[in-house]
Design a protein around this nucleic acid. Sequence first.
RNA 1: GGUUCCAUAGCUCAGUUGGCUAGAGCGCACGAUUCACAUUCGUGAGGUCGCAGGUUCGAGCCCUGCUGGAACCACCA
Length: 866
Amino acid sequence: MKFASSYEPGDFEADIYAAWENSGVFRPAPYVEGEKAYSIVMPPPNANGNLHIGHGLTMAIEDSLVRYHRLRGESTWYFPGADHAGFETWVVYERNLEVTGHTRFEYSRDDLYAKVWNFVQEQRGNMEKQVRALGTSCSWDDMTFTLDEQVVRRVYKTFEQMWQDGMIYRGEKLVNYCPKHQTAFADIEVEHEDEKGKLWDIAYPFADGTGEVVVSTTRPETLFGDTAVAVNPSDSRYDGMIGAMLRLPLTDREIPLVADEHADPEYGTGAVKITPAHDYDDFEVGIRHDLPRIRVIDDSGLMTGCGEEYDGMTTAECRKLVLRNLKEMGLLRGEREIVHAVAHCYKCGTVIEPTLKEQWFVDVKRLADAAIREINADKIKFFPASKKKVLVNYLKGLKDWNISRQIPWGIAIPMFKLAEPGATLPDGTPAPDWVFDERTQLTEIERGGARYVRDEDTFDTWFSSSHWPIVCTDWEAQNTGAHDLNPYYPLNVMETGADILFAWVARMIMMGVYVTGEVPFREVYLHGLVLDEHGQKMSKSKGNVINPIELVSKYGSDAFRLGILRGRSAGMNQAFSEQSVVSGRNLCNKLWNVSRFIQQLVDENENGDETVHTFNAGEDWICREIDEARKLLEKQMKEYRFSEAVETLYGLLWDEYADWFVESQKIYKNVPLLKRTLEAVLVLMHPFAPFVTEAIWQNLSWTEGMIITASWPERLKYDPISAEEFEKIMEVVTEVRSTLTAIPGGKKWPMLYGDDSLVDDNQVLIQYLTRVPLVTSCEDQPRGIRVALANREVYLDVPEDVVAKYASALEERILAVGRELDGLNARMMNPRYVDKAPAALVEETRRAIEEKTALIERLKLERQAI
RNA sequence: GGUUCCAUAGCUCAGUUGGCUAGAGCGCACGAUUCACAUUCGUGAGGUCGCAGGUUCGAGCCCUGCUGGAACCACCA
């Protein structure tokens, strides 16, 4: 006997995964022109990291989809990946470096790159192992690392195209700058948090001594960078003063009072100091009024150019000193508590210093407009649908994208700067300041006789990862000529977390449309966050992090997948607990034991004793149920309704297959059908529980090949009338069971029946399922308690004294049926219902009324008898 | 300030063209058990579907308003 009495996932999973992987089934079946292909990419987990619960959900969803489509015979391609995770990895590495007493500034970029490369290689491997442990059936041969040569090549090509299209520019703009990591960020990488702060009022006297303007600010230390004070043009308090010069306290500079809409008369004093080099709004004001930009905070976050007294201080130290000095001078006029949003580095929490820097920007307008056009033309279907609006709304307001980072770990920006400004080419024309060149391994190149030096920045990781569908499907190589040569691009679906809709999904769409002219995927499924069992966000500091791999080793991969998908719907943040995994484990064990039992029956009947009989033991009924479940699953998979799909499978296996059909088959065995139906159930469950279904498939004596490449069940044939009949038997059984429990004493009583061929034909089955001691005809002499079945005469042979004890249960039953009947009657009495509702519905109501009326009459008779 | 989502049983959640008595798992109560499975089986209790209106023969579902929560975006000095 190959089947142990319970399913032990640890005994099978590793071997099964290896068998799948070695047999090559993870690779797509050769694509046949005109047939269906199915492609999906894995959002690449950090190459040197470990999987967290979100990855667990991603893999569960994606692999279920992939296995489902593979079973349906589609050429299915699931592309795995590993992310160099530019900034994330760099932060980890830099911390390690600091522990050894070194800093990044001791090394060249190329050295650092090599060091991090080695670091990642040493750390690498866990992630891939964990992806395998989750059962992910991706095509490992096509594993792509985000720093692989073909990725870099593709990114450079796009960048060059954008450069030529005039969409890339280098600009001195305010960028989000983290003084700790000393790099700039895109807007999306900055986290805003409401914080308590103070708003100070500071007097700026007029240069001519005729008075003063009091400004309100949260950042007094940036005063040294002020180049104007602005008031609202409509603010009558400042009539006639616009254009006057003010003396900037603590300095010997004079700055103008300007009128600008930016100043809100309602806020503070209505006057705002303008520091174009350190504030986004002020930068804009500065452009409007042609103001100079003075940097007073350097790249390390220290004060600079403010005079000896202040230079070299941190911003906090400087703020204190400035306030003290202003107070002594009598210029500090007020101070109040406020709450305002402060930007933080998403990695270290350091306050982001908006800083004036030269950076590479992508002019996103053209990209965003094209993306919006495709999205609005419904070229991409969103799950949940509401994300479409959210995304369009985001794209509409998108500002130019800063793509350069001052960290060494990443793809080098392929731009070189003219070494000697103003140099001319041999033909006398001025040499361009910047040239594109892919030879980023060189620090210096020569172009047209001029010398150029490499830009030391690297790309924002989202710039390269926005190419992911293009790179994974090798779009370029496949599409040199005609456009639709590659059946795997666009991807069928992009599955990822709703939290990176903007950072990643939006950019993939923009880039896909720009590079290929086509959206990169036809559907987007976004999952929500996995929260802890109390609905709290998981975090290390809260200590409520659940490790998916631990759950896998404790309960099995399938249990984890079933558990995490249970109750999961698109876009929703949802609580998750170990309990749901336990429930998944139980399901696997149930499936295992059903299979074990059926194998036993097969073994016992292997000598051809597979009699086909005339009794109805649910054969047609189970075929119908399996068929219905199959159709339902197909619909649910198409609509990404995982919660319901898992429900469907639970119901099919547990309630229908095991509790009714297999139970019934203990009386009348139809071995060929047991085999066929078990196969169908296994295949239907395979996408969600790949290991246990494969383990069973391998253990069963009659199955061939591997279930992973089996075929999705065909339509099962059944006689609908016979299926209905079994349902009637189920009704009898359920009602008898229920009545038995309602009778005080907890005893099983014999069952009697009147003139009833259905019961007559299925006596043995009914007796087995109800566990009554006897089922026999009452031969026109009914006695005992009549079971509440409308069109059937079924009795429990209970002595008079026990019948009397049943009275209260009967009374309750009469009331319940009465309430139902009242509801139905009320509906029927409404002439507009009869008039307007669909005829079939009205007819159904009519029939229900008839049935309930008959039932209640009989129950009342019964009551009288007692 | 803007956008979006959520509110259904004690808990976690399903519920998509509006249709019969609103479902599941867990938990709870009562009962069962000589072999496929205690990781089991049977029976049951528990919900005016956040509140107030509206549309409709009919609303958990559609519309309006309100209350309470969450997420994201945003330059508030």
